Simulated scan of single mutants.
Amino acid sequence: MVKALGEDLPKEKFDELEKFIDSMQTTKGALIEILHKAQDIFGYLPRDVQLYIARKLGIPGAEVYGVVSFYSYFTTKPRGKHTISVCMGTACFVKGAERIATKLKEKLGIEADEITKDGLFTLKYVRCIGACGLAPVVMVDDKVFGRVKEDEIDEILDKYRS
């Protein structure tokens, strides 16, 4: 076990990440690919994982953190099993995304960037999903739900609860 911000991160996960990095032809220009793999393995990118990657690639930790903090896909905090993203782009906002977000917060009992008590869901707001014609849009993991109405939220959540 490796301690990270009060957590124990399994050595096996570091071993898996090391094996992935070592299997690459070259790591030059591969930071984003490695971060994706690390997030797949750990579920998020805590500081210790970022520093491990920096050491393996021979680059500053600040460079790794800069990439992690720039892209909204990456997270430094644990997430629930399913990530619910509410698009807050202009088209979605105008078509009621704020009401959808409020309803989701109420149903899940959490605020944005929090995890439900059962560890099943994380709620987050995103700038734009790129499906403006389907506004308002909610994404659960990689599935897009378009023209979402408040009364459809229970049905959407139930698909992921079972």
Rank of each mutant, 00 (worst) to 15 (best):
K19M: 11
R47S: 14
E106H: 10
V126Y: 01
V49W: 01
D158T: 12
K143W: 02
I21F: 02
Y125I: 12
D141V: 07
A91W: 09
I115G: 01
C87P: 10
G43T: 03
I21W: 01
G61M: 08
E114Y: 07
K13H: 11
D48I: 13
G130A: 01
I156F: 00
F20C: 00
F20T: 08
L57Q: 03
A91R: 14
K28Y: 14
I110Y: 01
K149G: 09
F145R: 05
G146R: 09
V140F: 00
E12W: 01
H36Q: 10
V126C: 04
M1D: 15
G130W: 02
G146K: 10
A112L: 15
Q50R: 11
L5T: 14
G58I: 07
S72G: 13
M24F: 10
G29L: 08
F121W: 02
I100Q: 05
A30I: 05
A38L: 03
K95D: 12
T83H: 04
I153K: 06
K19H: 12
L123C: 07
D151S: 13
M1L: 14
A97R: 00
L17T: 09
Q39S: 02
K13M: 08
E16H: 09
E12I: 09
K149D: 07
K117T: 12
T102M: 13
M139W: 04
V64H: 01
D151N: 15
D158P: 04
K77T: 11
I21R: 06
A54P: 07
G6A: 05
S23G: 04
